[in-house]
Design a protein around this nucleic acid. Structure first.
Lengths: 311, 311
DNA sequence: GTCAATTTTTGTCCAGGACAAACGTGCCCA
DNA sequence: TGGGCACGTTTGTCCTGGACAAAAATTGAC
């Protein structure tokens, strides 16, 4: 990969790129001797790209539940071995991946027009629900994988995101606005700027005929709480990508839970929660979109029972 | 509003909610004597909601360019006065704003369904070009104004953005992919996360029949450069909202200009440039979308002359 | 008025100490 | 086998207070 030479990064740049706090970076240096950044003329840390890269890798492995002591001091090769053994190890059959492969090929070739028409055809052929659950969800994984392997550049990933977003909105726009229960407000918490997960959820809700209000990304907790109450929704749906740290996300979820009235449920979606250990009272975790219909059915069963008794 | 009684917030919680870094919070306390949090049994800061609220207000005012020294030490009432007085001053004529007023009214009422249908009707009636130039552009201003006057909440602004984005994408999706010159690649630079300007530009380009590739928001300069050359576009279009600092933006523009081959033009759009003094060689500034057709015509005239002589 | 130089303001960085919450381990008991 | 409890270890966040660079405001010269 002919990457142009990037300058060394400041500590706040590294914090932004890896999600590791400045404090953490400094204390690792003190305790484990890594990262060991250069210093500028003024004694401030300058992290070479090589170290940033390793930190990114470590950060990802941490999210899988590995301990820092085993990672931070380890040589790069050991980390790569771990990274690939752990996730790629789940030897998946190539499955019916023709749609996926074609998409990836168009993307690799920077073929924007081809991509647009390909996705559009896929949407028409599969219908919105299967487009989202069977295709888009898997495609996101493939693209993320290809990116982390260096097979796709950032701009290609952006191109993909943009086109996919376009198709999803086309699909959602074509559905008739629903009115069924539960009324859902969709958004993401501050720091989570990925729209795709949100749109995929919105599509799944739309095909269920649900009344669904999306606020887009990054709504502060107190705003979510106020808006949910004023709109009279029954569920607040939040999307989380793996870019966010689970710990941070949990903290924000707890905070939101404390602000919302009890009778409003929180549905927290995204692959981020796949490795979650603890539960959180009053929050429903949805790790895969294909679980959504089940969750909705559960809610409706409960709601119907409730309204039978009281209405 | 029956807000549940919230516990005092830790410093990291305040950082999350106000966007002010821990360092900033601590140094304000040292310098200005505010915020002055309680301490828990272990000496750690605990911010009462009242202080958090004031910090949020300060944070907003800072974004408008006010200085911390005048805000942090000031009493709450003075801040509130400032917040309301500062922006409302530019008493402008109401102009032919029926569409605008209705939109604002629906937004104020949190009427999502009404908003959706209203915008959709407006798009159908005006057509994509006039929808963007005559309506969306003005509406954005109105919404921003209403927000800064405290008439709209963040969540209402999000609701507006989301719905508008939806309509724009519907409109763009309905246009036939163009192939006319110049080929344009659209994106924003890192730090600029507003999509709406980008989509409005994309719509204007689409109705001109232009081949237009959007990479979405926040593409690093080196990626833009590489992608532009691989895609063979003739123009890189960038959108800038007023959220970005002009100085920072200019610096990034210069950097991008240095990376791009000379024959690829840069078109920099957005209200941010309205107060620009200096010019930047090789960069065309477009402060209002209605100038875009003219710029395109200029380019084509130039291009045609050029291709007559060489082709 | 415009531009450059200077002063003030302001946020980020640093070091190194402290500690609580999370985590792992070993043990007991059902 | 598995669930609960006590114990040591790991780990991230918080603390203080000093320093300084970048940004903004001010001054001064032309």
């Amino acid at each position: 990969m002919p990457t142009p030479q990037l300058p060394d990064a400041s500590i706040s740049a590294v914090e932004r790129e890896t999600g590791l706090s400045k404090d953490t970076l400094r204390i690792w240096e003190r305790r484990y001797g890594f990262p060991l950044p250069l210093r500028d003329a003024h004694g401030e840390r300058l992290y070479p790209q090589e170290q940033v890269h390793k930190l990114r890798l470590i950060s990802r492995l941490l999210d899988r539940g590995l301990r820092p002591s085993q990672l931070v001091a380890a040589p790069l090769e050991a980390l790569i071995a771990r990274a690939s053994s752990d996730s790629g190890g789940s030897a998946r059959a190539p499955e019916d991946g023709e749609l996926l492969d074609t998409t990836l090929r168009l993307l690799a070739a920077y073929d924007e027009a081809g991509l647009r028409s390909h996705l559009s055809v896929a949407l028409q052929r599969l219908g919105l629900q299967r487009f989202v659950i069977d295709f888009a969800a898997r495609m996101n994984l493939r693209v993320g994988e290809a990116w982390s392997l260096g097979q796709l550049s950032i701009s290609q990933e952006h191109l993909y995101t943009e086109q996919m977003q376009h198709q999803l909105r086309q699909g959602i726009g074509a559905t008739y606005p629903g009115a069924r229960h539960p009324g859902v407000m969709l958004t993401t918490l501050p720091g989570e700027e990925h729209q795709l997960g949100l749109l995929m959820a919105q599509a799944c809700l739309a095909v269920e005929g649900i009344r669904c209000v999306s606020l887009g990304v990054q709504t502060p907790a107190w705003e979510i709480s106020e808006a949910a109450q004023r709109q009279g929704v029954e569920v607040v749906g939040l999307s989380f990508s793996e870019a966010l740290r689970q710990k941070v996300a949990l903290q924000m979820l707890k905070d939101l839970r404390a602000r919302l009235p009890e009778q409003i449920e929180i549905w927290a979606g995204g692959a981020l929660w796949a490795r979650l250990r603890r539960r959180l009272p009053g929050v429903r975790f949805i790790t895969r979109l294909d679980q959504l219909p089940r969750v909705i059915a559960d809610y409706r069963a409960q709601y119907d029972t409730w309204s039978e008794h009281t209405g």
